[in-house]
Design a protein around this nucleic acid. Structure first.
Ligand SMILES: [Mn+2]
Ligand SMILES: [Mn+2]
Ligand SMILES: [Mn+2]
Ligand SMILES: [Mn+2]
Lengths: 218, 218
DNA sequence: ATAATATTTTAGACAAATCTAAAAATTTGT
DNA sequence: ACAAATTTTTAGATTTGTCTAAAATATTAT
């Protein structure tokens, strides 16, 4: 696969939320920052190659083969992210752009040895699971902070939005993955929350809460 | 620069042996495994960009700007080679192909941190010097084993040919960089040498000797 | 010096990935 | 149900990097 094909496959995978729903041409175009006409062309090519199922006007979805490819790219992307943070002291908001390039390097040995070098990590710096060589990973049981009940006791385990601005916001407010969180109060009016994190009380907006994943502790 | 442009710049650099001599179209074509007509096209484009000086039928040479770019690519290539050998347990004959891809990843921080992570190495696994961030490196004082006098006492410091077959040959015969070498005898007839390496006597062909660099110890 | 040979460039074509503008199909609203 | 709005596809053009075949230039040998 070319670099471009790989990026399309990954976009279709992410938009398909696992694999199921067919993905619209416009959705892919938006995610890839291209025009819908370009997507149509590429999707036809990927269909020829057996990577996706496509019927015009009906959207596109990965085949089993396509899903395998997608998972191998995601695996590479996330392993490189771990490498950048753990070994090269990147912060979690700086890794995406570089991993976006590194994920396309072709060498099975490279990625296997990298995996070993990193101690076979199971999640990336944003809390997302790293697929195994065989494409397996357990979908974490996590919920958006905005959707849990008042009084919930949990641990911060991931971010939905992993753009630099959001991640920098979390850093600035001393919120990191692994931190225990208690939801003290939910404000009806604007959806904002009062939480206790690291033994410190703070108030966060609905927008923040709906981009933070927690694992509930009972 | 695009990936392709970068590979052309690197090829012109290597063929130019430092920088001086103008490089022929055919030489670049051979090294890049393309057709001379493709080289002409690319060289025109690089000339527009100020990367090379080119006058038709007269060959091509890097500008000062072009040399800077070449050195930064060579730096990346060799740092990645060190990484692969030191951290990921690649053997020295496996690294070139992968470094050929990794050298094109764009991120200044990435390469600076990698350099630090590796302890600021000065040479790559094949004994070639790694340019500094500023493009400086000292040209090692090394000679081809085939060109030293009988009785010379030296240390194996590099290879001219770094293709897998040659490197595997050296591995198989227990010849590694850093090994002390004494030239016991030179055979007039076929240019073969009798050497003492690691306290073991062995005979090597002219072809081998002309691809091994030694640093002479007086 | 000139002919033969080798090298290099030009002209024209092609595949990949993209774009714009217009046409076709689908979806939505009344 | 049908008009309007939206989405998607097609047609045709563009850029990058490549190729083949032919023409131009340079080099070599007699
Ligand atoms: Mn990518
Ligand atoms: Mn990530
Ligand atoms: Mn390369
Ligand atoms: Mn090397």
């Amino acid at each position: 696969m070319t670099l471009s094909e790989e990026d399309y496959i990954k976009a279709i995978y992410h938009l398909g939320k696992g694999e199921q729903a067919p993905v619209s041409t416009n959705a892919v175009a938006e995610k890839m920052d291209t025009k819908p006409s370009s997507v149509t062309d590429m999707v036809k090519k990927l269909s020829e190659k057996g990577v996706v199922n496509y019927r015009r006007y009906k959207g596109v979805r990965l085949t089993e083969y396509g899903l395998k490819i997608a998972l191998s790219i995601v695996r590479k992307h996330r392993l490189w992210e771990v490498f950048l943070v753990e070994k090269l002291h990147f912060s979690w908001d700086e890794v995406h752009e570089v991993a976006e390039q590194l994920e396309h390097v072709k060498s099975e040995k490279l990625i296997d040895e990298l995996d070993k070098h990193l101690g076979f990590p199971k999640i990336d710096p944003h809390g997302d699971p790293i697929p195994s060589k065989e494409g397996e990973f357990k979908k974490a049981v996590k919920k958006l902070l905005s959707e849990v009940l008042t009084g919930t006791n949990g641990v911060c385990v991931g971010v939905k939005d992993s753009s630099p601005p959001f991640l920098k916001f979390l850093d600035k407010n001393n919120i990191a993955l692994g931190d225990p969180i208690i939801v003290l109060e939910k404000e009806e009016f604007d959806g904002s929350l009062t939480i206790k994190i690291n033994n410190k009380e703070m108030r966060i907006s609905e927008q923040i809460a709906s981009n933070l994943f927690v694992e509930i502790i009972d």
